[in-house]
């Protein structure tokens, strides 16, 4: 079985989806001969040709809106926004059209499109290249928002996103693109959307995280185990819709919860998860829920970036704090 990095797994999934469905096409900035600035589409232009892998003009609102039109008329566009910092012009199309088309035509026109974008911090990128914008997108009804955390899950979730009959925003933690590799078999098997992954079962504490934060959360889980704290570790993966059942079941078992995200604290998805637990699992809770999140500030440029990013130490601190509560 091949050892793939996340970027390779994404490329493998794209290639697979294009092989199996001639309606799948890719477009975006520099996705063609250049293979995308992160090389997610490397070789696809050469293999599938210039009509199925298209370099668009530099035109984000167009990219999203054209995807809507194409999806409504029989294609399965996988559009790329070069960096999540440039996703804002697409919000109009995502919120006003992609997410609403099926509903406002009562099922007559649909929008099976995927909008991919490299996402998050941690690679010392230029300004405007490192923001975490998932909450903004997750607030849009009718849209699915997915963030993978490993090569294998990136492969399976991207296949699922492309095959899904509704629009999906697929945010790829660029910090994880090449940081590790793992065995990924190109079986064409998708992973379920709308389902969180329980990465490790434990009894004392639930940690919910996603994307690049899974790395720190996994590391924290190992270190906490050494001091006898058993963690139920959940990779949320699909951020909208949230798999509330899995989180609730876990917290009903452990009674304690730490939520980790890279995005700023206020109005982040941690707030939603935390509110959901307060509403549904109050009697199971043994300690206040704790959020480990980015600061409520502008994403710092590369010199201060490390200070912004939640890391293993922050997660362990929060976990201990929650465990010590009585």
């Amino acid at each position: 079985m091949a050892e793939l990095t996340m970027i390779e797994a994404i490329r493998t999934a794209l290639s697979r989806a294009m092989e199996e469905d001639p309606d799948v096409i890719i477009f975006g900035e520099d996705v063609g001969i250049d293979g995308g600035v992160f090389r997610a589409t490397d070789g696809l232009f050469q293999h599938f040709g210039s009509s199925r892998v298209r370099d668009t003009p530099l035109s984000e609102a167009l990219i999203a809106g054209m995807a809507v039109g194409a999806a409504a008329h029989g294609l399965r566009p996988v559009a790329e926004i070069q960096f999540s910092g440039f996703i804002y012009p697409t919000l109009d199309q995502l919120a006003n059209h992609a997410s609403r088309l099926r509903n406002r035509t009562r099922g007559r026109l649909t929008c099976p499109m995927v909008l991919r974008a490299p996402y998050g911090g941690g690679i010392k990128a230029p300004e405007h290249h490192s923001e975490s914008i998932e909450a903004m997108l997750a607030h849009i009804p009718g849209l699915r928002v997915v963030i993978p955390s490993t090569p294998a899950r990136a492969y399976g979730l991207l296949l699922a996103a492309i095959r899904d009959p509704d629009p999906v925003v697929f945010l790829e933690p660029k910090r994880l693109y090449r940081s590790t590799s793992e065995a990924v078999e190109d079986t064409g098997e998708a992973l379920p959307l709308d389902k969180a992954f329980v990465l490790q079962e434990g009894t004392d504490l639930t940690i919910v995280a996603w994307g690049a934060m899974i790395k720190g959360a996994t590391e924290a889980t190992l270190q906490l185990a050494e001091s006898g704290i058993s963690v139920d570790l959940i990779d949320l993966a699909t951020l909208k819709p949230i798999d509330r059942a899995t989180i609730r079941a876990s917290v009903e078992k452990t009674g304690r919860c730490v939520i980790v995200h890279e995005a700023p604290l206020t109005a982040g998805l941690g707030a939603e998860i935390s509110a959901d637990l307060a509403e549904h699992c109050l009697t199971s809770l043994l300690a206040p829920i704790k959020r480990v999140a980015g600061y409520d500030t502008v994403m710092p440029y590369l010199r201060l970036e490390a200070h912004y990013m939640p890391d293993t130490a922050h997660i362990i601190d929060a976990a201990r704090n929650v465990m010590e509560f009585s």
């Binding site: 309606d23 096409i25 009509s51 199925r52 609102a61 167009l62 999203a64 809106g65 054209m66 995807a67 809507v68 039109g69 194409a70 999806a71 409504a72 008329h73 029989g74 294609l75 566009p77 109009d92 199309q93 006003n96 059209h97 406002r104 035509t105 007559r108 026109l109």
Partner: peptide, 27 residues
């Protein structure tokens, strides 16, 4: 049934037409 419904956000329908045309060319 292939036609779009009216578009309220002014001008946001223009890219849809490009997408529809792209689908036509492609298929």
């Amino acid at each position: 049934r292939q036609d779009f419904p009216v578009c309220i956000p002014v001008a946001s329908q223009f890219p849809h037409a490009a997408g529809v045309a792209l689908a036509k060319v492609q298929k």
